[in-house]
């Protein structure tokens, strides 16, 4: 896998981590009022890209752990729609929540497809 693809993959993992952190922050009003989602997303996506420089292949386990954690937090805290508002606060204020929802879920589905393909289809070929 080339470096750009790896950077995209780990940047998306960084986004999932940022959403998890923001969901946890949202449970405390004092923190929520002071920490901006755009900062959390910026740092986590940046770390994801940096992390990709030291990796040679994608990590399906990391992706699935972060994705599962994100959904678990959403269900536990009953904050499903908050994901889209968190993403919108990353300099996307002119875009409707509906659009963000569609785009985010499409990308999530795409990465699930890629990871699923890597794990199961390639193994089956071997």
């Amino acid at each position: 896998m080339n470096k750009l693809s790896l950077a995209c993959f780990y940047a998306f993992c960084g986004l999932l981590l940022a959403i998890c952190i923001s969901l946890i922050i949202s449970m405390n009003v004092w923190l929520e009022m002071r920490i901006h989602e755009r900062l959390v997303i910026g740092v986590c996506v940046g770390l994801g890209i940096l992390f990709s420089l030291f990796k040679r292949k994608t990590s399906p386990a990391l992706f699935f752990v972060l994705q599962s954690l994100m959904f678990l937090l959403c269900f536990w805290f009953s904050k499903m729609d908050l994901i889209y508002y968190i993403i919108r606060n990353f300099y996307l204020s002119g875009i409707s929540i509906f659009t963000i929802k569609i785009v985010f879920l499409s990308i999530l589905t795409f990465f699930n497809g890629i990871v699923f393909f890597q794990i199961f289809v390639k193994k089956a070929k071997l």
Partner: peptide, 24 residues
């Protein structure tokens, strides 16, 4: 690689199209 580039282009186009619509 190609798939990711196509996806990123589509995402960028989708966002920019929606943004214009919202502003108008």
């Amino acid at each position: 690689m190609k798939k990711i580039l196509i996806l990123l282009t589509l995402v960028a186009l989708f966002f920019s199209a929606c943004q214009k619509k919202d502003d108008t």
